[in-house]
Design a protein around this nucleic acid. Sequence first.
DNA 1: TTTGCAATACGCACCGTCTCGTATTGGTGA
DNA 2: TCACCAATACGAGACGGTGCGTATTGCAAA
Lengths: 188, 188
Amino acid sequence: MAILQATARLFADRGYEQLTMEGIAHEAGVGKQTIYRWWTSKGALVADCLLEGLLLPEGIAPDDTGDIRTDLVTWLHKIFVLLESKGGPALMRSLIAAGAESDDVGGRLGDTFGTSSFLVERFDKAVAVGQLPPDAPLQQMGEALLGAVIFRTLTRAPADADVAARLVDVALGPRLADDGIRHGDLSE
Amino acid sequence: MAILQATARLFADRGYEQLTMEGIAHEAGVGKQTIYRWWTSKGALVADCLLEGLLLPEGIAPDDTGDIRTDLVTWLHKIFVLLESKGGPALMRSLIAAGAESDDVGGRLGDTFGTSSFLVERFDKAVAVGQLPPDAPLQQMGEALLGAVIFRTLTRAPADADVAARLVDVALGPRLADDGIRHGDLSE
DNA sequence: TTTGCAATACGCACCGTCTCGTATTGGTGA
DNA sequence: TCACCAATACGAGACGGTGCGTATTGCAAA
């Protein structure tokens, strides 16, 4: 659908706040009424874009090299780099703002990043190979990691590899079964 | 300053999105020009409210009963209850939206909840009495907890006492020094 | 008087609704 | 098979409403 693609394009280079129905209609070569016929609000429209995967960059799922800690640190570092890159913070903040304003977008974010997210899927694999205990609170571990990323985005805190390692350390905690508990020097 | 109080009042019962400069001016019995003389934007104005402590409810800092785990679970549970209450989600989402949109508010949120937040202060005390090791990544533990709260708010995920306990478990991880590592049944 | 500020008028942008004129589509009868 | 004709979907954009940020006005205290 041309409207969704136009929305995604404008979202990517102007952000949620700057997104206007008139702008989308023009970009898509469509009348406003046509948009309103299919979607009730800007939020619903953006939520559908999110569902179609038009808003997020490819490959935001962590790798699976077999070692959960390495994979998570690598993944988180990649996210941080993305967040430092041009347009990265804007995209992220736009998503957050959209989620905060619109129940549709918020719910969709929950679907994308929540219960059955790529992160929890990666945790599941780690459980399967015995790197995490079966009773680990995978859900909350994922929330903690993603939440910390959101928190840093919101507060404009710079992030580096050190922070990534420490966050993973917090998330995995005592649950890493195969190679000990404490990793690296965590002193401030 | 009457303007700040008016802003806080309107923010509390209408939220950030519904907040208008004209509304604030009227509520404060002030001309719009006077507001613009002192603040450049709605964001800056709300950021100052945050700084003055006019937006957050009293007593959002955790207690100190001596046991860090109990205190954190109690605190998180309290936050969740607040979040379920009338106006709770709206306030929280308004703050998040304001932070996402405005660098002023975002930075202020970082000051309030970040590096030297009440949460990290509580962690410091736990370190002082030996409940946490001195090299624990306190900063990241705080981020994980607050981030998870933000994440749940954004995704409209309901929260209960169980979730609170699991989140605290993730945050504290192996670092609880005085009474063992695993607490409660964490199976799904 | 002068000055500081509340009040308000202004032009702009966008909202969501509406109306209009133009395709497009699918059914019907010769 | 083909011409005719609703019915419908759509692009375009006018419209009234709201809030923005700026500029002007007029009152009241010093």
